[in-house]
Computed example of a mutant assay.
Amino acid sequence: MAEHGVEKLLLIVEDDESLARTLKRSFERREYRVLTAASHDDVVELLKTESPGFAVVDLKLNGASGLACVQTLHAHDEDMNIVVLTGFASIATAVEAIKLGARHYLAKPSNTDDIEKAFGKTEGDTDVELGTRPSTIKTLEWERIQQTLADADFNISEAARRLGIHRRTLARKLLKRQVK
């Protein structure tokens, strides 16, 4: 359960019990000691007695933003290796996650190998492939929606108001582009 005599303590912040359980078992097989939390309040309570070196944080927790968890975890330990995992990937939320202390940002579906590889990436990569395709209007709309959602703490009604569209219209757009 240790790497070079040091325990690998991982916190999984995920409100989907099935996914949390699957990730927990998979990381335990890789000799991590795994703790789980389903909300920001759970994280705050857990940090009173534990100090994980690794964390996997779902971006959307029961309608709330996982970004608050990233901020709290980073404030607790600036060296914690935090990976954000999301089904609602966007440039806006990726930038905010990194600013708040995450080391990496992965879109679902991601497996244990992807997450562990992200833990190992502590430096930026200047050789990353640059996209050559210009942004489409649909992509720009999606990015604007994601930025507004993040700004509204993932409150769909408030985001719809800020975007000047009906709440149901926004909900339909989100369901259409949802990443599983």
Rank of each mutant, 00 (worst) to 15 (best):
D114I: 02
L46R: 12
E50T: 14
A171V: 08
K24V: 13
A97E: 03
E143F: 03
V44L: 07
G66C: 05
D125M: 03
S135H: 10
L149C: 07
L11T: 13
H76A: 10
V84L: 04
E141W: 10
P52D: 03
K180Y: 05
G63D: 05
I137G: 12
D58G: 03
T112G: 06
D127A: 13
D125L: 01
R168L: 12
I91S: 10
L174P: 00
L67F: 08
I91P: 06
R144F: 08
G124R: 09
E116V: 08
L47K: 07
H104E: 15
S135E: 11
K117H: 14
G5E: 09
A37I: 08
Q178V: 14
Y105P: 01
R161S: 15
T126Q: 13
T49E: 13
D42L: 03
G66M: 01
A20D: 09
K176D: 15
L59F: 00
Y105K: 01
S65G: 06
T72W: 09
L47Y: 08
E28Q: 06
K60L: 08
Q146T: 14
W142C: 12
T122W: 09
E7Y: 05
G124L: 10
R33S: 13
L174G: 01
I91D: 05
L67W: 06
V70T: 00
L47T: 04
E3G: 13
F54V: 15
G63M: 03
V56N: 02
G63P: 02
E158F: 04
T86C: 01
R103C: 11
Y105R: 01
W142K: 14
D127I: 07
L23N: 04
V57H: 00
P52K: 04
V84P: 02
R25Q: 14
I12A: 03
R133T: 15
K138N: 09
A38E: 12
T112W: 04
L11V: 14
V6A: 12
R177I: 07
A2P: 10
L106T: 08
A64F: 02
I165V: 11
H4Q: 15
A152H: 06
P109M: 07
K60T: 12
G53W: 00
G87N: 06
N81M: 06
I98D: 10
I91R: 10
L140H: 13
A159D: 03
L170V: 01
E17W: 07
R161N: 14
A2L: 08
Q71S: 13
E143R: 07
D151Y: 10
G101H: 06
A89W: 00
F119W: 04
N111Q: 05
S157G: 13
T112M: 01
D151R: 14
E28P: 02
R167I: 01
G101L: 02
S51E: 05
T136K: 10
I145M: 05
Y32D: 09
I165K: 10
A37T: 06
I82P: 11
H40Q: 10
A152Q: 10
